[in-house]
């Protein structure tokens, strides 16, 4: 495909005039071959390239003991909580709190550290005929797939044993959604700053914001405007935080929304039904896609 006509009778030495001539010949030759090839390449080659890369990223991550510890930890916590509470619904409710705390934290920190540590790998790949986009997406896919595997074994198996219900499925899906969203945020924060320490700091800050600060703001606003109808505002604010979104969706399935007053009743009305779950899934997808797209844009312009 891309070999110069090295066997041509007049070997091109260092004479500019001669080599120029050879160049022109080659350009016309190449134009025809390269267009034919690029069409084939872009269709089949790109897809397989992504898979080939993904294979190596996955092999590398799965060697990492952190992923196994994470699965074990989840397994111990979830079996423990179910054995203590006895009632599956109560078990799910207490498990929800642990999951909402642990899953985003671990996903965002693990992904950020892994991304910084694979800088050499990324640099090596960038000098090969691969699109930057493909490199970043294969990193993202490798990270999410390995974390989701931990989640499915560590959380999925206990849920299947102790509470094989619709609520459990929603809890598992919410945890998967959070993992994907926070890996996406992790790549964004890793690409916002070159410095590893700062990047990890930014990731922890993001987690802290979504887990604690945001709810404090939410409560303050609700308290300040308690005399006004706040249903829509609350709903929008819940959608603006992936952790709150996951929490509300799971709670709405548990039939304890009656404890949450009028707003709770309204959310039950909107989010408790299957359309509500679809809507929540859609918003969660935005939380996954948007940071990743911004990160890909940053990565494309990054100097390595």
């Amino acid at each position: 495909m891309f070999t110069p006509n090295t066997n041509s009778p007049h070997r091109i030495e260092s004479f500019p005039a001669l080599s120029l001539q050879g160049d022109e010949e080659n350009i016309t030759l190449r134009k025809t071959t390269s267009t034919r090839m690029s069409a084939k390449e872009t269709k089949a080659g790109k897809k397989y390239l992504m898979l080939r890369l993904l294979k190596y990223v996955l092999l590398d991550i799965l060697k990492n003991r952190m992923v196994i510890f994470y699965a074990l930890f989840l397994f111990v916590i979830s079996t423990g909580l179910f054995s203590i509470s006895g009632d599956p619904t109560k078990g799910i409710a207490s498990l929800l709190n642990v999951i909402l705390l642990v899953t985003p934290l671990l996903s965002i920190i693990f992904a950020t550290i892994y991304f910084y540590n694979s800088y050499e790998f990324i640099e090596l790949l960038s000098s090969q005929p691969i699109q930057r986009k493909t490199i970043l997406y294969s990193q993202y896919a490798g990270l999410t797939i390995s974390l989701l595997l931990s989640l499915l074994t560590g959380l999925g198996i206990p849920l299947l044993i102790f509470a094989p219900t619709y609520e459990s499925l929603i809890l598992l899906l919410a945890a998967c959604g959070l993992t994907m969203a926070f890996v996406s945020l992790a790549l964004l924060s890793a690409l916002l700053t070159r410095d590893k320490a700062r990047g990890i700091g930014l990731s922890i800050l993001l987690w802290f914001y979504f887990t604690i600060l945001y709810d404090a703001f939410l409560l303050m606003i609700m308290f300040a405007f308690m005399d006004y109808p706040m249903e829509t505002v609350t709903l929008v604010m819940v959608a603006l935080n992936p952790i709150d979104l996951a929490r509300v969706v799971v709670l709405m399935q548990l039939d304890i929304s009656a404890l949450m007053g009028y707003t709770g009743a309204m959310m039950q009305e909107i989010l408790g039904k299957s359309q509500g779950v679809f809507a929540a899934t859609f918003v969660m997808m935005l939380w996954i896609i948007l940071p990743l797209t911004i990160a890909a844009g940053k990565f494309k312009r990054r100097d390595l």
Binding site: M1, F2, T3, E41, G45, L49, R52, L53, Y56, L125, Q128, P129, I130
Partner: peptide, 12 residues
């Protein structure tokens, strides 16, 4: 790995 990545883009 690099061979696999560059598969199809080289002749020899």
């Amino acid at each position: 790995m690099i061979k696999e990545i560059r598969k199809g883009t080289y002749d020899v």
